[in-house]
Design a protein around this nucleic acid. Sequence first.
DNA 1: ATCCTATCGATCGAAGGTGATCGAAGTTGA
DNA 2: TCAACTTCGATCACCTTCGATCGATAGGAT
Lengths: 378, 378
Amino acid sequence: MTASGSPAPMPEERRAQVVELLRRRGPVRVADLAQALDVSAITIRRDIALLASQGLIRRVRGGAMPPAVAPAQDHGAAPADEPAPRATAEQSAGAPRRLTVGMVVPSLDYYWPEVIRGVREAAAATGIKIVLRGATYQAADERRQLSELMDSAGVDGLLVAPTTTGDDGEELMSWLRQAPVPVVLIERAAATGAHDAMESVVSDHTLGAAMAVRHLAVLGHRRIGVITTLHSPTTPHIRRGWSHACTELGLEPDAAPDVTTVDQRDPAWPAELDRILAACRQTGTTALLVHSDPEAISLVERCRERGLRVPADLAVVTYDDEVAELCDPPLTAVRPPRRSIGRAAFTLLAERLTDPDPCRPTHHVVIEPRLIVRSSSS
Amino acid sequence: MTASGSPAPMPEERRAQVVELLRRRGPVRVADLAQALDVSAITIRRDIALLASQGLIRRVRGGAMPPAVAPAQDHGAAPADEPAPRATAEQSAGAPRRLTVGMVVPSLDYYWPEVIRGVREAAAATGIKIVLRGATYQAADERRQLSELMDSAGVDGLLVAPTTTGDDGEELMSWLRQAPVPVVLIERAAATGAHDAMESVVSDHTLGAAMAVRHLAVLGHRRIGVITTLHSPTTPHIRRGWSHACTELGLEPDAAPDVTTVDQRDPAWPAELDRILAACRQTGTTALLVHSDPEAISLVERCRERGLRVPADLAVVTYDDEVAELCDPPLTAVRPPRRSIGRAAFTLLAERLTDPDPCRPTHHVVIEPRLIVRSSSS
DNA sequence: ATCCTATCGATCGAAGGTGATCGAAGTTGA
DNA sequence: TCAACTTCGATCACCTTCGATCGATAGGAT
């Protein structure tokens, strides 16, 4: 019943799908694969032969199975005519090759340094090497970085925070899904319940936003607005948490400003800012949850210029806590667990790389943020 | 509808199942294996001979037994002649006291043994000791076990699969929330987004149920029913996954049986069973997702009594895969990642216990199940 | 346009896997 | 010890799967 929509599954792509299917479903028969991928059995056999010669899968009569972990005892006469490079790399007795992990993040100057620190910290205890690349929130760019990492550095696994939006984003994700090495997504994941073959480590931004709203509600605020940035992948989660918490607490989310706008470097920002503050005054909004510190700081400064006291007239909670304490007054902030995210992502990948079980199921890790209360609220 | 009735597992796969069965159920007779795997006795004998020659099992007259020196689980690379020097006092050179972890599970004879095995496996590498208590799906009982563990055994952390329903359940949860030692919940967690101070490791049952539905839909089934057990904490997740997948695939969940009922030991079960089968016939339902193996097996047997062929007239997928392969025909099953759950839960708790950061944020781990395709579908 | 290369699918002989039968060997109980 | 029973192993027939060769098709370069 595979819908007739697949135009041209490239050979390479199909083989990657074979490996993927095998990893997810365990032993697979030739006939099943042929039906699933809509090619003839002979083609599948050729694929299996090729992949088996690369050690990516194990060929058996009738189909394929996940690569064997050396059977308990091969009595000298091991069928070791095939080196099987990648699959058994870490367990080759004597000289275990040093594992290398590639990491690609969208930026090296905001949010991500702390994540990288977490990764490095976790990696330090192991012998695993980290190769880092920073891209620039451009899917095409990241794709290039990844390709280079795969080809030249020969990494054994990837930690990636990909750009998922746009056509390039779609393509990047499907490239990652079929990558020949394990991939752990950082701060990106498909919606819960969807089957996404890739493992992931994410902050619970939804909870983080809800925590901020509850904090403000406890302080007596009844009109709490939210300001988020247009192009951030975090935005939908924050808005969801905000709206959930508002309805749960009996506040009216519709009555308060609810703006998704350009970021603070955009020429249109100052005008937006004034619009936001005007809306606050108009609706009687006394508290704002602002996504990302620079925007929040800029907003607080504008408040001061206009004689609005923070927090007396307008309480502000910022989302990110990168530079929130540098503001005057220091900003209450939701701090995503950046360092823990990094640590957990590395740990997850390392476990997959060293786990001898070829059918190890896909893990997802969710980590809760913290609310750091400073003077911009309360 | 259900196309060819040739499930035909591959030889290698079947041999792997023999080893697996042997590991799970101890000594097995040839006839039992032949029936369970749906091949003739002579084939089983040949398999046993081959596996025995590889040292994976021990051949005895009439059947097979686990090898004298158990190969260290999936970690096949353990040489059989080395008794695994596992008692190495790991990283903490200055650890003053041996850490102890308490574990309480609702039952010791279904589902949980494999989870416990995972915990033990993960614990073996560390110096941490596990103290196990089994309760009986009674919150009060579990509360007693926990108190005793805390007081007498002096544990440093808890792995708990609490009963969350009823007043006792509520109280138990709040007791756990305030426990003086870290707690990791196993297969239990508050709904996503809610702030639950406790860490958790859960199977993605929602995804598992959706996988089953998708599998059946691919085989051409359009009316897919779901049967779940009244008092199981898994039930809501399975039903959610089922209904999501149905709507996503354009099936009509309302048109098929959707029963949450007593379990198979209840006196009312046989009558329920007949009602379910009648409903299937009435609505033209050709496939069922049945929660928990015993219920599914009982259902398949009733089908046989009434002349309904499985899978030709009714395809069945069971949820749990504890004993699904022992049915005739062997049942296609969703297998929650029990062992991985155990491993991850222990790892999470151990990390918390050894992490010097007192503000380590709350982690949640979600692990995807696997679909094991056997003959009761397809 | 033509050649070249890569990939796919079909056919057919070869090889492996399975099951039935039957005689041999082991087990149990008297 | 013998007899009844079960289990095991060898052989053969049948079926599935595999591998090699050949022809067909598509895309790219000259």
